[in-house]
Nucleic acid binder design. Structure first.
Lengths: 251, 251
DNA sequence: CTTGCACCTCACGCCGCGTGAGGTCCGAGG
DNA sequence: CCTCGGACCTCACGCGGCGTGAGGTGCAAG
């Protein structure tokens, strides 16, 4: 009844279905669709049943199933179509959600880059890094607050603050090495300067200060390894004794 | 100045950054991040510069760049960060759009399956196939119209129509084989029945009828190969002569 | 007989590692 | 001294879905 149609050869079936010959070979290789006959010389011959199966395969591929699962689906007819589709849809939606989260990150990055004008790639990495850290450790509101403070202070002030840290940290390290007691007035003056620098960044927000501390606690290994002249846990501990003397925490 | 920190060995760097040892090996293999030193016995030693570079790599990976492109970005500092990010974002959004289109298809499928109750996988494939065909050849409004007609007629009526086609087509094929002239009354009666069956599906909508014709024209190879007892171009041509006799087209 | 196309069978490449297999190095404990 | 365990080393295959050759055969037309 169905042998009226002459069987397809690969090329014909490929061009009829829009697939490539290689694809059909592949389906044969993995046992997903093997032609039900061959010519004596080995040429593949696909009959009506094969074509039908191929259409089913194409249908399932079109909605994103992997080949392995398609084979499974076509071999066992016990599976409930609804459940399969629902599960598949769920996975797909999760992937979409992940990618959208990534897109949001990229959009935020793009906005940051607008303000940074002609950023070369080195800066790009720093900005990404900062953006990622921000995401990990600060709430969106805190991020807005930090950005607002940055804009308010201006670029020059920010560079001033960075330069100040560049002086304070080596000085503290000196005192640590010499074993200066927490009661030393020079050290206490340094502690007050430290405190003001922290406040310049946090704007006096204790939650932000706490987040920064948490960030340092969890990331100090990489931070200290990658950037010289950054505080480490020992320095935080040392400064804590000084803050205890002059009263009040670091921020 | 930065050699105060002892260099990292792979395991330490891996656990500090959250990567795996294998990943660091891989980055070394492909020349993305080679440790700047080795112990005499060959153990990798990563210094501060390496760690910094790794952080940049992690940043760029976190926003989805492939390793090859990361290497390229990090080696040439001419590239504009904005353009890179914008391009990357664009590609990502396109991928998202594609996947969302797929999700929409799956949702539509899920809805179709609800009405089909306990569909096994075989039916699933037919429904997917039909859904995809619908998408290709019919506008959403036409799809709604077809679905509405289907619901109006009821399942029994649809099965009746299918059974009717199952009689009409072999009969026509008989006449074709015998060379019956278009003036033959039996054949003309068959043509009128054909016309009514088409109308049962299209609801008299000429646009839908035209789409069906286009679908057959473009897909007849696979349709005829996969399903016995379907009209082919020769049959359409033959019927056209009969419709010319009795006046009016097929639909 | 030759040309040329469609077909055949290997088999490697992609991307970002996971996961062994099989061997070496190193610090601590007996 | 030896030994033990853990961290390190270098291959090398596997994954998904084919693309892209390379090198050879089949078959109908000129």
């Amino acid at each position: 009844m169905s042998e009226l149609q002459p069987p397809f050869k690969v090329g014909a079936l490929a061009s009829a279905t829009g697939l490539t010959v290689r694809t059909l070979h592949h389906y044969d290789e993995i046992g997903l669709l093997s032609p039900s006959a061959r010519t004596p010389s080995g040429h593949r011959l696909y009959d009506a049943h094969d074509v039908q199966r191929l259409q089913q395969i194409q249908s399932l591929r079109a909605v994103g199933f992997p080949l392995e699962e398609i084979r499974h689906l076509l071999s066992s007819r016990q599976v409930s179509a609804q459940r399969v589709i629902a599960l598949h849809l769920e996975q797909l939606e999760q992937r979409i959600a992940e990618q959208q989260a990534l897109a949001v990150r990229l959009q935020r990055l793009a906005r940051h880059l607008e303000t940074a004008a002609l950023a070369p790639v080195g800066d790009l990495c720093r900005i990404i890094e900062a953006t990622l850290m921000m995401e990990q450790y600060f709430t969106p509101e805190q991020q807005d607050a930090i950005k607002a403070r940055g804009a308010m202070l201006g670029e020059q002030a920010i560079r001033d603050v960075e330069a100040a840290w560049g002086e304070v940290i080596p000085a503290v390290r000196e005192h640590m090495a010499r074993g200066t007691p927490p009661t030393d007035p020079d050290l206490q003056a340094l502690a007050r300067r430290w405190k003001s620098l922290v406040e310049a960044f946090t704007g006096g927000d204790h939650a932000i200060a706490a987040s920064v501390r948490r960030m340092y606690d969890e990331q100090h290994e990489v931070i200290n390894a990658a950037h010289a002249n950054t505080p480490d846990p020992a320095m935080f501990a040392f400064m804590a004794t000084v803050f205890a003397e002059i009263g009040g925490g670091p921020g």
